[in-house]
Every structure is written in structure tokens, then in C-alpha cells.
């Protein structure tokens, strides 16, 4: 049993069995993080490069720790696109890195499809750590893992995703992942931030937050990215918070015990109130912990020899 691919670029390309295999492997990996000595030798001698063209603390750190717990050598390369455009192209950077024989290159990039550009041309396994508004597959996998861990299943659950769906790679990957594992997804947000062709993503959309969360088992709040929403998309964060923010009052309209998720970082008081974020049904910190297990699982699964494919 292995992933049927050299790279992990999108959730869209994964078979449901592959998703379950990744989740099962992560389930086994999670124990390592509970040990006093958090290290296993599985990836000894393997080189993992974190190539980040966007600022990121949690995702980069998560991959770095995951790699180190598996004994891989992890190297971080942080670069801003503005400095890159002056200098070396992504492809040239990729080729330079390839010459150093990394086993895995993890890339985050503001442009959709950038990981594929590398994947098509490099021997190393490429993991997409977020490409523009396209996909963020490891986030979706850790979200599924967290839901499955808490509720014991995925099939038949209802999840509401709330916020800027249009520009969100987290939403895109999660919608795919959830549909493939039998979760019913509905999304809610202001009309200007909903995708124009939601049927392509396979979800129902609404601008009515309370309708979206009414019978949900899980509510996933997305970060409102102040830097991405220009003044033509949202009048103000205050109004956004009033219409789409999740607070204790609004939570009363949802099912008792509904679970709350957020990919982070939080805008407290904008899309989510502190009482909800820190409340008893919040899975926000579980998501972070589980991110390590998912990323260990992927690093492990993608570093196998693939005599038939390579």
C-alpha cells in the first residue's frame, strides 16, 4: 500500500482510499508525539526542504518538526516573491535545489499551480503547503483527521465552512476532502466572497450564516485575510463580524455540542469571538497537534521507493 503518486499537490487528485490511508498512517504516527524522546529513525538520511515564498509560521514549523521527528534533515528556505522576481525564477531555484538531491520539497507559493510547476520537473517529491487560492491539502487532511478523531467517523457528517470561500485554499481543499469522505458541506459568507460557480466545487452556498450552521456537526470558520480583501469586497470588518462572526449568541442557533474549527491564525473578535475560540467545543489546538501527525504520515508515505513509477 502506498500513495499512487510521487507528489501531493491537491486533494482533488486523491482517491478516497488514499485519503483514508493517509489518515490511518497519521493515526499511527500520532503516538510518536506523545513520547518523551520524540524521534524515530524512519527518514534517517533523507533531506526535506521547506521552500516558502509566503510568510508562514505554523505550517512551516509543523513540517519542520514532523520531518525532524522522523529523523530527516530539514532545511528551511524562506523567500519573498518580490525578492525572487528580481532574481532567480522558481524553476531555476527548483533545479538548483534538485542538484542537492532533496527527497522532499515542501512549497508554499502565492501563485496557484506553482507546486505543479516544480513537480513536473523535479525528481523530488513535492508537497503543496498552499498555492495561492488553489489548495492547501495538508490542512484539509489534518482537519479531516481531527474530525474523525473526535467524532469517530466522517461519513454522513455535516460541516459548515464560513467566511471568504472565494479566495480560500483551505476551503477549496476541505470541500474536496469532505466530499470524498462522505461529508455534506455547506458554505456561507458574504455574496462578494462566495465563489461564482459553487457547483463546480460541489457545495451549497448561502449568505445566511444561521441557516448554514443550523444542523452542522462541525463549524469551520475561515480567517478573514485583511490584506487580501480590498475595500470593494467588504465594507468593513465590523460589519463582517456583525453578519458572519461566530459568537456565543449565534452558537445557540447551532446544535448542542457543535465542534468549532479554525485553520488559524485567528482574528479574535472578527470571524470568531474569544469565548468560542477558547470554548469547550473548540478543536483549534487539536488541529495544530494533528497537523504534525498528518505531515509525518505524508513525509513517510512519499519517501518510499517507487520502482514501478520512478
Amino acid at each position: 500500500m502506498t500513495l499512487k503518486r510521487k507528489d501531493l499537490l491537491t486533494i482533488r487528485e486523491l482517491e478516497p482510499e488514499e485519503i483514508h490511508q493517509i489518515l490511518d498512517t497519521a493515526d499511527s504516527m500520532k503516538e510518536i508525539g506523545t513520547r518523551e524522546i520524540k524521534k524515530v529513525p524512519a527518514l534517517r538520511g533523507k533531506t526535506v526542504i521547506n521552500l516558502f515564498y509566503e510568510a508562514s509560521t505554523r505550517t512551516r514549523t509543523s513540517f519542520e518538526i514532523a520531518g525532524k521527528w522522523l529523523s530527516a534533515d530539514v532545511i528551511n528556505i524562506a523567500s519573498t516573491v518580490s525578492s525572487m522576481t528580481k532574481g532567480e525564477s522558481l524553476l531555476d531555484t527548483g533545479k538548483t535545489l534538485q542538484a542537492m538531491r532533496p527527497d522532499v520539497v515542501i512549497i508554499r507559493h502565492p501563485v496557484p499551480g506553482a507546486p505543479k510547476l516544480l513537480a513536473d520537473r523535479l525528481q523530488a517529491a513535492i508537497i503543496n503547503a498552499g498555492d495561492g487560492a488553489h489548495e492547501h491539502p495538508t490542512q484539509a487532511l489534518l482537519d479531516l483527521f481531527t474530525i474523525r478523531e473526535r467524532l469517530g467517523r466522517l461519513e454522513g457528517l455535516r460541516v459548515a465552512i464560513v467566511g471568504d470561500i472565494s479566495h480560500s485554499r483551505v476551503a477549496r481543499s476541505n470541500i474536496q476532502a469532505m466530499r470524498k469522505t462522505g461529508i455534506e458541506v455547506r458554505v456561507a459568507g458574504p455574496a462578494t466572497l462566495l465563489p461564482r460557480y459553487p457547483e463546480q466545487l460541489g457545495v451549497q452556498v448561502t449568505t445566511d450564516l444561521e441557516a448554514a450552521i443550523a444542523d452542522a456537526d462541525v463549524i469551520m470558520m475561515l480567517r478573514i485575510q485583511r490584506e487580501r480583501q480590498g475595500p470593494t469586497l467588504l465594507p468593513s470588518l465590523r460589519e463582517y463580524s456583525r453578519l458572519f462572526g461566530l459568537n456565543v449568541e449565534r452558537l445557540k442557533k447551532a446544535k448542542e455540542g457543535v465542534l468549532i474549527m479554525h485553520p488559524g491564525p485567528l482574528n479574535r473578535g472578527v470571524e470568531i469571538s474569544p469565548e468560542v475560540a477558547d470554548g469547550p467545543y473548540s478543536l483549534i489546538l487539536d488541529q495544530v497537534t494533528n497537523g504534525l501527525a498528518i505531515r509525518m504520515a505524508l513525509l513517510y508515505l512519499l519517501t518510499g521507493g517507487h520502482p514501478a513509477e520512478r
Binding site: 500500500m1 502506498t2 490511518d24 498512517t25 493515526d27 499511527s28 504516527m29 503516538e31 510518536i32 524515530v40 529513525p41 524512519a42 527518514l43 533523507k46 522522523l70 527527497d103 504520515a297 513517510y300 508515505l301 519517501t303 518510499g304 521507493g305 517507487h306 520502482p307
Partner: peptide, 18 residues
């Protein structure tokens, strides 16, 4: 995860829980 033949040839063996 402690095997001495990981990543040599063929797909990774299934990891089970400790």
C-alpha cells in the same frame, strides 16, 4: 519506522500503532 530497508525499494510498508 525502525526497519533497515525503508525507502530502499518499493512502497513504504504500512505503519501501525505502537
Amino acid at each position: 519506522l525502525y526497519r533497515d530497508d525503508l525507502g530502499k525499494a518499493g512502497p513504504q510498508p504500512t505503519v501501525r500503532k505502537t
